[in-house]
C-alpha cells in the first residue's frame, strides 16, 4: 500500500516514514537551529557534494530555503527553474531528469505540479530525490518544520488538538501534516467547505475528525494551522473570497475559542484578509516566522541524513 520513501534514501513522503525516523530528523534539526544566528559558520559536512534544486513550479521560498540549507552544510547547489527551461518545449520529465543525472549531482530536490512526480522519477533514477512538494500529494519537509515549530513550543505532539483549516483536498501541506501528526498521536481536526474536505480524509490515519464549522474546529485547539487559499482551485468550490473569509477565515474571535496559548501556523505566503486576518497573523500566538526559520534547519537535517 505505501509508496516507498526509500529510493537510495531520498525523502518522498511522510506517509511511509515511521515515527522513529521522523523523531530522529526532528531531534537533529535542533542542532542546526542556532545556525541561523550571526555566529553561523559554514559546515563542511557535505563538502564536495552537489545538490540540484529542480522546480517545475515556481516557489522562491522553498527553493531558497533548500539552497541555504545545502550551502550551510558545505554542498554546492545548482538551481534549475524547469518551467522556463526545456520542459516547456515538450521535453518529457524522464528526459529532463536523464539530462540532470548525466551531470552527476548527489541529490535532486524537486517540486512538481503533478502528484507522484517524484515517485515516478524515483522508479527510473538511481539518485536520492527529496520531494519539495508534489501536486496535491505531499510536502514532507513542510510537515517536518511544522512539527519542529510545535515542539519548540510544546513538550510533545501527542494528544495535542490540531485544527487544519482550508482547502484540505488540494493541499500537500495538509496531507503531510495529517500523516505526521497522526503518527505522533495528535488529535487532528480538519475543517473547510465540504467539497474541499472529503470524508475519505478521515481514513488517512488515526485520530482524524472532520468539521465543517470553524467554531467547532478551533474550540480547545492547541494549534491552528491555516492553509493558503489557492485561487486556481476555486472552481472546485465556487465561493467568493468574502464568503470564504466569512466562514473559513481565522479571526480573533475564533482564537478566543481555542486554548489560551494556542499557536497559529501557516505555511506561507499568507493572504491577509483571505484565510486569516491581520490581527491574527501579527498576534503573539502566530509562529509563522518561526516556521520559516525552522525550514532551513529541518532541510539541513534532511540533506545531512541523505548525503552525510
Amino acid at each position: 500500500m505505501t509508496t516507498s520513501a526509500a529510493t537510495p534514501a531520498g525523502l518522498l513522503d511522510i506517509e511511509s516514514l515511521d515515527r522513529s525516523e521522523i523523531e530522529a530528523i526532528l531531534e537533529r534539526t535542533r542542532f542546526f537551529q542556532p545556525q541561523g544566528d550571526e555566529n553561523f559558520r559554514r559546515l563542511e559536512t557535505l563538502k564536495g557534494k552537489s545538490v540540484v534544486t529542480l522546480f517545475f513550479e515556481a516557489s522562491t521560498r522553498t527553493r531558497v530555503s533548500f539552497e541555504i540549507a545545502a550551502r550551510r552544510l558545505g554542498a554546492d547547489t545548482i538551481s534549475i527553474a524547469a518551467q522556463s527551461s526545456s520542459v516547456s518545449k515538450g521535453e518529457s520529465l524522464v528526459d529532463t531528469l536523464n539530462t540532470l543525472v548525466a551531470m552527476r549531482p548527489h541529490a535532486i530536490v524537486m517540486r512538481h505540479a503533478a502528484s507522484g512526480a517524484p515517485q515516478f522519477l524515483a522508479r527510473h533514477l538511481k539518485i536520492p530525490i527529496v520531494n519539495a512538494g508534489d501536486g496535491t500529494h505531499e510536502h514532507p519537509t513542510q510537515a517536518l518544520l511544522d512539527a519542529r515549530t510545535i515542539l519548540d513550543n510544546r513538550p510533545s505532539i501527542e494528544r495535542l488538538r490540531v485544527a487544519i483549516i482550508g482547502d484540505i483536498a488540494h493541499s500537500r501541506v495538509a496531507r503531510s501534516n495529517i500523516h505526521l501528526l497522526s503518527k505522533f498521536g495528535a488529535e487532528v481536526v480538519l475543517c473547510g467547505p465540504p467539497s474541499l474536505v472529503p470524508q475519505e480524509l478521515a481514513s488517512l490515519g488515526n485520530g482524524i475528525t472532520i468539521r465543517y464549522k470553524m467554531e467547532d474546529a478551533v474550540r480547545d485547539a492547541d494549534v491552528v494551522m491555516m492553509l493558503r487559499v489557492q485561487l486556481e482551485r476555486q472552481h472546485e468550490a465556487p465561493m467568493s473570497a468574502s464568503e470564504y473569509f466569512r466562514f473559513y477565515g481565522l479571526r480573533p474571535e475564533h482564537m478566543a475559542l481555542a486554548k489560551p496559548d494556542a499557536l497559529v501556523m501557516h505555511p506561507g505566503p499568507i493572504n491577509r484578509g483571505r484565510e486569516l486576518s491581520s490581527e491574527v497573523a501579527d498576534s503573539k500566538s502566530s509562529v509563522i516566522l518561526n516556521q520559516v526559520g525552522n525550514g532551513i534547519a529541518v532541510r539541513m537535517a534532511v540533506l545531512e541524513r541523505i548525503l552525510g
Binding site: S115, G116, G135
Partner: peptide, 11 residues
C-alpha cells in the same frame, strides 16, 4: 474517487 485518490492527491 475514494480513500486512495484522497491519499495520493490525485483527482
Amino acid at each position: 474517487e475514494g480513500v486512495n485518490s484522497v491519499r495520493l492527491g490525485l483527482r
